[in-house]
């Protein structure tokens, strides 16, 4: 029963330091055409700032959500946090160990086991040529968690049962499962090495609503049971509200507002957050007066100068067009907005 026992509840003293600290994280991608084309066509280098100056922290057993539309950089941040993409600037510190510090190689390797990820598309995140039990067993074998094949099989069975699947179905291939069942397999794989911290990148956006409810409920149950910490990436505000303790809103690679969930939904501060909340069609809020939303997300390759949101912002003034706002603390929230800073809204 090693799967269940080793995830002991954290001690009270441990809660003092956040489990995950993301400091000034940034990533620039080179999206230029090949060198030869640039030379012959006289094109400049094109850089895409997928994320910049992203700072937040996540406490143990907490769910921190990043929301944003396409091109907001939320998935890039998720991949940097788990170490799949190297950051251009800043660092990710997990349990006091910097993930970009070469000196702590051994510590980092040990940390690997404690961080896992659940991906968006359960059709792409499971190798179609592998049986479910081999998929779930891979981390067990890679980290040498199970001592023998029999032990591996036993643990895989427990894991499958844990996520609500029949262990006998382990011999099936991914295409024989429904979307929700596949996401359960992906969750079982993520749980296999007893992680403390799981990054969930849009885990339910490829699923139907009733299946989404099953998966969200399962994730919350698992969090309670094993004391998991989640970084939850989503574009769906209702899902985020249901799952998160604290929320960060991203726009064009920057965190524009970070606030406790309740506060954000009761009193959104940043004009973009307000606009998002207003734009979501919701069953219980039909018939409300909606402010017309203007414009679309600009191309992140050449973002507007100053505050990136200013072309769509009803409160933008001259300062917003030239000067990037810095994060300020108001109430329980951190906001990047000149209008909020100046008390105009």
């Amino acid at each position: 029963m090693s799967v269940m026992t080793s995830a002991a509840p954290p001690l009270a003293s441990e809660a003092a330091r956040p489990l995950v600290e993301v400091k000034n994280l940034g990533r620039v991608f080179d999206v230029s055409k090949p060198w030869l084309n640039r030379l012959t066509e006289g094109l400049p280098r094109r850089l895409l700032t997928a994320a910049a100056e992203v700072t937040f922290s996540i406490n143990k057993r907490e769910t921190f959500a990043l929301v944003g539309e396409s091109g907001s950089g939320k998935s890039t941040v998720a991949k940097m946090v788990v170490g799949l993409i190297a950051p251009t600037t800043g660092e990710v510190i997990i349990d006091g160990v910097s993930m970009s510090d070469r000196r702590h190689d051994a510590d980092r390797r040990r940390l690997r086991r404690r961080i896992q990820m659940v991906f968006q598309d359960p059709y792409a995140s499971l190798n179609p040529r592998w049986r479910a039990l081999d998929i779930v067993a891979e981390p067990l074998r890679a980290f040498g968690i199970a001592q023998s094949e029999a032990e591996t099989a036993k643990q895989v069975g427990e894991l499958l049962r844990l996520v609500g699947l029949d262990p006998a179905d382990g011999t099936k291939y991914p295409h024989e499962f429904s979307g929700g069942q596949r996401q359960r397999i992906a969750i079982a794989r993520a749980l296999a090495c007893n992680p403390e911290f799981i990054v969930c990148d849009e885990p339910t956006s490829a699923l139907d609503v009733s299946v989404q409810a099953q998966i969200l409920n399962l994730m919350r149950d698992l969090q309670d049971r094993f004391g998991l910490t989640y970084l939850f990436i989503s574009h769906n505000l209702a899902v985020v509200r249901h799952m998160a303790n604290r929320i960060g809103v991203m726009y064009l690679g920057r965190l524009v507002e970070v606030a406790p969930a309740r506060e954000m939904f009761a009193k959104p501060k940043h004009p973009y957050t307000r606009m998002l909340l207003d734009a979501v069609p919701d069953l219980d809020l039909t018939g409300r007066k909606r402010k017309p939303v203007e414009g679309e997300v600009p191309n992140p390759v050449d973002p507007p100068p100053g505050c990136p949101f200013h072309p769509r912002c009803p409160f933008a003034n001259e300062r917003c067009r030239v000067e990037m706002p810095q994060p300020i603390l108001t109430g329980g929230a951190t906001v990047r907005c000149h209008a909020v800073e100046e008390g105009r809204i």
Binding site: Q116, F119, S125, F143
Partner: peptide, 13 residues
């Protein structure tokens, strides 16, 4: 670039 390869990289394969 499919997620199953990322998942394998994540556990250090």
């Amino acid at each position: 670039n499919k997620d199953y390869v990322l998942a394998a990289r994540l556990i250090g394969i």
